[in-house]
Nucleic acid binder design. Structure first.
Length: 543
DNA sequence: TCGTTAAAG
DNA sequence: TTTTCTTTAACGA
């Protein structure tokens, strides 16, 4: 009809896949605990359920959602199995596994075309999502011709553009094959959204869950977006909503309801753009937001690479007023960071130039502050040396550096009064170590060979902590199985005391413990491991 | 280069 | 809707 007037530029239209692993943490946790496959499962961080599997969601009738307190979840579904998700290692590894499968499959796909090699950008978003720009792959497949193309999966929307329809047909077949491959290799299911932009692909990926895929044909995308709450658009966050809301209030408007409101208030022309830029105090963001609200997203898929750009380890808590407690917490972070830094060295042969230390004090609300210093040489060299001894020494060095920053920039010391609620240690500004064999040549080899061929029991042996006499770890990668099918962790994640196998009782304890936690000396509470536990203070004295 | 803010999962 | 733990990008200084 009006297709001729719209002049769709088929040559420029892209084909983007958005992949999203189903309830990622829960899937990964259950994969290594097959006996939980049909049970309701939640993953805990502190006292909160950060994810749940679909069995739990069904049984709890919607009462278990993203940041639900354990106590609430247990009331809604007393049978629920709680798994401690405070160690993110298995999730990071599963993420790398999935990415390795994607890259291998993509590479094979390109190769089989026989038109030479070309890159296919993959952009990670969190541990469980990835965007893939398959435009080039689709174009080559269309050129190669052959089979009759058809859609795979659910179709949302419509289009008048034949070229775009065919491109998304091909893309949906790629998505379908890729999903099968990922599930076959990793035993993890996922959804896919297929469209011409990251925005639309991402909206599509959530339309049919779990383990399914949706094609978003963009003919009516603008109208569809117009009717939605703008907060549901990726990129339109809390702060932007706040600023626009405040503006609406000042100007006697109704509160912001739909993306159409935003377009109406600020227009889609040049001058409207300027007024939103003023409200947001940022030209580029204003343009982006206005486009978003009209269903337009031209942002490219940026290749993320395999290695993360930075590493952070953080801990938040109700209160920390004693220097020994601060030292203990810092040392736990340092241990985690050293483990990951050593792993990073193995995989990528690079070193961080910057050390960041974050902190937050009571009364600061959610406001955390960070300070950066050059990463001490001692730490990086120890992190690239083999042996448990080097690991221990670098934990000590890192702890001392972080404690120094805390003392110097935040006034946290034995002689000061403070009440911290957060500590974090980060490593960033990585430099490739080009001189070594560890660099690019073996890098691909290592990553690929590390994850790909592991079939049976790979995971747990993969990331063994540097076996220190430091800090006996209560959440080791593979803890003993629960005694009762109703009890999934045997110790309180807060005080580490042995828990009742009766869930209701255990959860009551955890809740109470949470309330009075951090005010009680943790050293005393962890009596079981106390004799083997590394004492920060004594260690610092003798070094 | 440092530090903050915002966004995402 | 501030509760968990992480990663990234952009921006101002």
């Amino acid at each position: 009809m009006s297709a001729a007037r719209k002049r769709p530029r088929a040559s420029q239209s892209r084909a983007i896949l958005a992949l999203d692993l189903d309830c990622f943490y829960a899937q990964v946790a259950i994969r290594s605990r097959p006996h939980l496959a049909n049970r309701p499962v939640v993953i805990l961080q502190k006292h909160l359920c950060v994810t749940s599997n679909y069995v739990a969601r069904r049984l709890a009738h919607g009462a278990v959602q993203k940041m639900t307190p354990v106590s609430t979840a247990l009331k809604a579904c007393p049978d629920i199995v709680c798994i401690d998700g405070s160690d993110l290692t298995p999730f990071r590894e599963a993420n790398a596994e999935v990415l390795a499968v994607i890259r291998a499959w993509l590479h094979a796909k390109v190769t089989e075309l026989g038109v030479g090699s070309f890159p296919i950008p993959c952009q990670k978003l969190g541990f469980d999502e990835v965007f893939i720009d398959v435009s080039r792959l689709v174009a080559e497949q269309v050129t190669a011709g052959g089979r009759p193309w058809e859609f795979q999966g659910h179709i949302f929307g419509r289009t008048d553009d034949d070229a775009s329809r065919r491109a998304l047909m091909v893309a949906s077949q790629l998505a379908s094959e890729l999903r099968k491959e990922i599930t076959l290799r990793t035993k993890l299911t996922l959804c896919a959204g297929i469209s011409e932009s990251k925005l639309l692909a991402k909206l599509a990926v959530n339309m049919n869950k779990p383990n399914d895929q949706t094609i978003f044909l963009s003919g009516d995308a603008a109208q569809y977006i117009a009717g939605r709450h703008p907060r549901s658009l990726p990129g339109f966050g809390y702060a932007v909503e706040g600023k626009i809301s405040a503006w609406a209030k000042r100007n006697g408007k109704e509160d912001i309801k739909t993306a159409a409101d935003v377009v109406q208030w600020f227009g889609d022309g040049k001058k409207g753009f300027a007024s939103l830029a003023k409200v947001l105090d940022n030209d580029d963001q204003a343009r982006k937001i206005l486009e978003l609200c009209q269903g337009t997203d031209t942002s490219p898929v940026i290749e993320s690479g395999d290695a993360p750009k930075s590493l952070t380890s953080m801990d938040s808590f109700r209160s920390c007023t004693k220097i020994e407690d601060a030292e203990r917490r810092v040392t736990i972070r340092a241990k985690d960071m050293v483990t990951r830094l050593r792993r990073d060295w193995e995989l990528y042969g690079r070193r961080p130039k910057t050390l960041t230390v974050g902190f937050r004090f009571r009364g600061d609300g959610y406001h955390a502050t960070m300070r950066a210093i050059p990463m001490p040489q001692e730490i990086v060299s120890l992190c690239s040396s083999k042996g448990a001894d080097a690991a221990d020494r670098s934990i000590i060095a890192l702890s001392r550096a972080a404690l120094f920053v805390l003392k110097d920039h935040a006034g946290v010391s034995a002689s000061s009064t403070f009440d911290m609620t957060l500590i974090s240690i980060g490593a960033s500004a990585f430099t490739e170590n080009k001189t070594e064999k560890n660099a690019t040549s073996t890098k691909k080899e290592t990553v690929a060979s590390f994850f790909a061929p592991k079939e049976g029991k790979g995971m747990s042996s993969v990331c063994r902590p540097p076996n220190g006499r430091l800090l006996q770890n209560r959440s080791s990668p593979n803890p003993r199985r629960p005694l009762s099918p109703n009890a999934s962790f045997s110790r309180c994640p807060i005080c580490n005391e042995v828990l009742s196998s009766l869930l209701a009782k255990a959860s009551l304890h955890v809740d109470q413990c949470l309330r009075r936690s951090e005010t009680v000396s943790p050293a005393r509470k962890r009596s079981k491991t106390a004799s083997n536990t590394f004492r920060v203070d004594t260690f610092f004295q003798r070094k």
